[in-house]
């Protein structure tokens, strides 16, 4: 019965130490590569334009971001919801 007590009182949120680490990692990725939000938006628009030749994407929902993948490594991660393929793209 006493074993249950800590569980009852434990807060169900993530430890703020971990939140701080995660926020720092993300902030530092952008600081270190020195990319402006304008550059990221330009990249996003260009990707939508290029992909639109092949498929119909939900432009509002396209998200492009940099994420840390290691101590000194960064990956460009894009989430691009596709509505449908374009007919002429399928024919080729």
């Amino acid at each position: 019965m006493f074993a249950l007590l800590p569980k009852l009182f434990r807060r169900e949120k993530t430890r703020s130490r971990d939140i701080a680490m995660e926020r720092l990692r993300l902030a530092l990725v952008h600081d270190r590569v020195n990319v402006s939000p304008q550059t990221m938006e330009g990249l996003r628009q260009d990707m939508i334009y290029a992909i639109s030749n092949y498929m119909d994407v939900d432009a509002q929902e396209v998200a492009v971001k940099l994420t840390p993948t290691g101590a000194a490594q960064v990956a460009l991660v894009a989430s691009i919801p596709v509505n449908r393929m374009k007919k002429d793209a399928l024919r080729d």
Partner: peptide
């Protein structure tokens, strides 16, 4: 220790 501050190693 309570998980509410980053450790020096972090």
């Amino acid at each position: 220790k309570a998980g509410d501050m980053m450790a020096a190693d972090d």
